[in-house]
Design a protein around this nucleic acid. Structure first.
Lengths: 226, 226
DNA sequence: AAACACAATGAGGAAATTATGAACATTGCC
DNA sequence: GGCAATGTTCATAATTTCCTCATTGTGTTT
């Protein structure tokens, strides 16, 4: 049984998560915004905090930062897909994972379990995902949103960057086109599958010799293999 | 065989789905609206509920929400194109999937199969199916979709992967050709039996020394024996 | 050992999938 | 509004994979 704090301004979201979590035997507290979340986190030791980003008064980023000042409680972020996708990782917020809306409660709880278990295992919490990744001469800076090919700055369009970002974040994992569409384009994109191919093509062109990292999985999708 | 509840106010829709489902050997109950659906769902444990959104008395959203209060039965939603599309996603009611009308019964049943199977797999709390399996020098990674033969990466075609994955997931179980066709090729495949042999052949070739794990069961089918 | 039933194999055409280029649409900016 | 950059769709080419079928091989039964 975990003690969980759910923070979101929309009641139905809290409701859905609460139901699922309680169904699994956990104890759930709720908060409507960042302020309230900080208060509650101060009072009580939660095993995990599930928090929306966009909230009135104090948003998820800042609330997380605030909480970090006195506790290392793991945080799972809920985010509407969009601009700030990668900001989630860039900084020292110590976010453990994130789920893009619309999520299924099932998925959220699966991640909660994973995080809490992982966290319990390694006493010294060390989330802090790196700000840059390097694969041979391919360097990706998640903070500045830059990509360097053998030291030369590559000129990626936003979509190309998003796609690369997602592929790299999930390197060595087979990703279906659907998954990519859902995660990179968003659940509200009802366009053509081939769109991905086109962006993959352009991305590959831009990666020069390191196009080799993006492998086609026939009948499935793509994978960043490093 | 699944127990399926079909909920729609149009009789021909129910009819079409029923026919297809029964053809596949499933058991089908019907309901005309949300109210009735909730009743029936309360009385009986269905493997899945296929439900229209727009219905008199109680619509699909609310019916789903209602049912969720006492059961976790997976729900597949039928929606007319353009019909409050985003509501499906905006917040999560625990809908497992959706199909846009006009749909083909084939598609519906394909999804039904996917959902029920997925659901059955995750229902037992800890089947703990690992991400990789290793048999001597044969290593299979289900996440990256890689197969290694003594450290060398094997180059399997999609069907070969699928076949191997299914065999391994059901290792030490005798699998008839029919079962294999149904599970790996899909219920809508009406091709030749020998097709399997051919793919087994190629798979064996690709597995090198570990072809030994795939044993022929004369008069029956095949088995992955480890 | 012969006859039989079934499995293994090889090859070619069919089918499915991906890559690519170019047209078209959208967005953001001046 | 017009322009430039980006994103999307679409048609076509290129490639890979799949399936069928005929033939050969192997184990079983009588």
């Amino acid at each position: 049984m975990y003690k969980i704090l759910v923070v979101d301004d929309e009641e139905n979201i809290r409701e859905v998560i609460r139901e699922y979590a309680e169904f699994e035997g956990h104890e759930v507290d709720e908060a409507c915004d960042g302020m309230e979340a900080v208060e509650k986190a101060k009072d009580k030791d939660y095993d995990i905090i599930i928090m929306d980003i966009m909230m009135p008064r104090l948003d998820g980023y800042l609330a997380c930062k605030e909480i970090r000042k006195f506790k290392q409680t793991p945080v799972l972020m809920l985010s509407a897909r969009g601009e700030e996708y990668d900001k989630l990782f860039g900084f020292e917020l110590g976010i453990d994972d994130y789920v893009v809306k619309p999520f299924s409660p099932k998925e959220v709880m699966a991640r909660v379990n994973a995080i809490v278990k992982r966290n319990a295992a390694s006493a010294p919490p060390a989330p802090a995902s790196s700000d840059v990744e390097k694969f041979e001469g391919l360097e990706i800076n998640f903070v500045s949103r830059d990509v360097f090919i053998d030291g030369e700055k590559a000129n990626l369009t936003p979509k190309e960057y998003d796609l690369l970002f997602y592929l790299v974040r999930n390197k060595n994992i087979a990703l279906t086109r659907n998954k990519l569409l859902e995660e990179v384009w968003g659940y509200d994109f009802f366009g053509d599958d081939r769109t991905i191919d086109t962006h993959i093509k352009m991305l590959r062109n831009n990666l020069g010799p390191y196009r080799k990292f993006i492998v086609t999985l026939r009948g499935l999708g793509y994978k960043f293999e490093a």
